[in-house]
Each structure stands twice: as structure tokens, then as C-alpha cells.
């Protein structure tokens, strides 16, 4: 457990120091919102209806673009070797790496979401359900994304392969995330089941991602 906490602490502090890239996710997130707004047009009424889906879609995209680095830096400088050699359960280390990825790439995006939502004219009653759905759902992206990141470890076109592999797996989180955000904004009874299902997907991801990711890392490190 202490080893896992150390991994999380190290990754998060590396990400937030200069050149670490935690801010890059937020910048990408805001930029993607700008892209959507430019593509859709300045119609505030239209944007307000689309704000929650757009915010979820761009949160997913910003997870995708940062996932290929999940194990890459540790792979390049050799610390992944140490982790593989010393971990009692590599699965737990992968879980720790995923948690660190969410803390340094997912959580900043969630925190930036209200400001970006303002630009997209999200209705006032939509903020709380959107934030809650992002908080509950975006960790699933980091967990499930670990599978693709581990498989593509060390490949030249890793980032595009990670995106291709992770995209279909992200569909349920996206569906229930947007569903919860929308249902909550209109006080629909669908809100609670959607949030609970989203939480179930995150928990499921926390199980499947580390197991599959650890298996792929073991293969990539021994071969």
C-alpha cells in the first residue's frame, strides 16, 4: 500500500511541476471547447442545449490524448522495470498509476469544467449534476485507458493506437455520464440510476483495467 501511495505521490508531483503536463490537459480541454463552439456557431441557445454532451466529449478526448504517456515516461527512464521487479502485485501498481493519471489529468479537467461550461452557456441547474457525473465517471477513463496504454507501450505510433483501443471501451462511461448530466439538469428520476450505473462502470474499470494492463506490461517488459 505504501508503495502504491508513493507511486501516486511521485506521479502527481511530477505532473504538477514545471514541464509535467498536468496543465496541458486543461489547456487542451479548453481548446477543444473552443473548437466545438466555433464549429457549432455563436447561437447561445443551441450551445446551452449541447453544453453537457460537449463537455463530456471533450473530457473524454483530453483523457485520450494524455493516456499514451501513462506508462511511457517510466518505460523510457527504466523506473517501470523497477516497478515490475519489486511490486508484489503489479495490478496494484497499475491501479496506482491510473489513479495518479486521473489526479493529474482528469481532476484538473473536472475542476476547469465549470469555467468552460460558462463559455458554453450551460444552464445554472446543470452545473451540479455535470460536475458530479464528471467526478464519478472520468476515473473510468483513466482505468480502462490503462489497457490500451499498456498494450501500446514502446510503440512508435502509440498515441493513435491507444485512442483506437480505448474509444469503444469508453462508450458506456460517455453514455451514462451525459445521461446523468442531462437528467440531473431537468430533475429527472433517471438521474440517480444513471449516476449509480456510472459509478458501477468506474468500479468495473478499476478492476478490469489494472488486471489487463498489468498482463500487457509484463509481456512488454519481458519480451
Amino acid at each position: 500500500m505504501r508503495a502504491q501511495l508513493a507511486v501516486i505521490g511521485r506521479d502527481v508531483s511530477l505532473a504538477f511541476r514545471s514541464g509535467g503536463g498536468a496543465l496541458h490537459s486543461v489547456i487542451f480541454f479548453a481548446l477543444a471547447a473552443l473548437v466545438f463552439a466555433l464549429a457549432i456557431g455563436p447561437d447561445l441557445a443551441l450551445l446551452s442545449g449541447l453544453a453537457a454532451p460537449i463537455l463530456w466529449a471533450i473530457a473524454l478526448l483530453s483523457a485520450l490524448v494524455s493516456l499514451d504517456r501513462l506508462f511511457q515516461a517510466d518505460f523510457e527512464d527504466g523506473s517501470l522495470d523497477t516497478i515490475v521487479e519489486t511490486a508484489d502485485f503489479l495490478e496494484l501498481s497499475v491501479l496506482a498509476k491510473s489513479v495518479a493519471h486521473w489526479l493529474s489529468a482528469g481532476l484538473p479537467v473536472v475542476l476547469a469544467a465549470p469555467a468552460v461550461a460558462l463559455l458554453l452557456n450551460l444552464p445554472a441547474e446543470g452545473y451540479a449534476p455535470l460536475l458530479l457525473s464528471l467526478l464519478v465517471g472520468t476515473p473510468a477513463l483513466s482505468f480502462l485507458g490503462a489497457i490500451g496504454a499498456a498494450v501500446a507501450l514502446g510503440l512508435r505510433r502509440a498515441s493513435i493506437l491507444v485512442a483506437i483501443l480505448s474509444g469503444p471501451l469508453f462508450a458506456p462511461a460517455l453514455i451514462f455520464g451525459v445521461g446523468a448530466a442531462r437528467a440531473g439538469a431537468v430533475d429527472s428520476p433517471q438521474f440517480l440510476p444513471a449516476i449509480l450505473l456510472l459509478g458501477a462502470i468506474t468500479l468495473f474499470g478499476a478492476l478490469l483495467g489494472p488486471i489487463a494492463g498489468a498482463a500487457a506490461i509484463r509481456l512488454n517488459m519481458t519480451a
Binding site: 469503444p168 462508450a171 453514455i175 478490469l208 498482463a215 509481456l219
Partner: peptide, 24 residues
Amino acid sequence: RLAAIVAIAGFINVPIIKFSVDWW
């Protein structure tokens, strides 16, 4: 072996994807 991991992880996800798409 890596492709096998991808196939198995995808297969486990198929029912969840199907369920979520139905709900959606």
C-alpha cells in the same frame, strides 16, 4: 499475447456496451 488481452478485455466489455447503448 497483447492482441489476446485486447480481445478478452473487449469481449468482457461487449455486454456493458450493449446495455449502455440500449439505455442511451
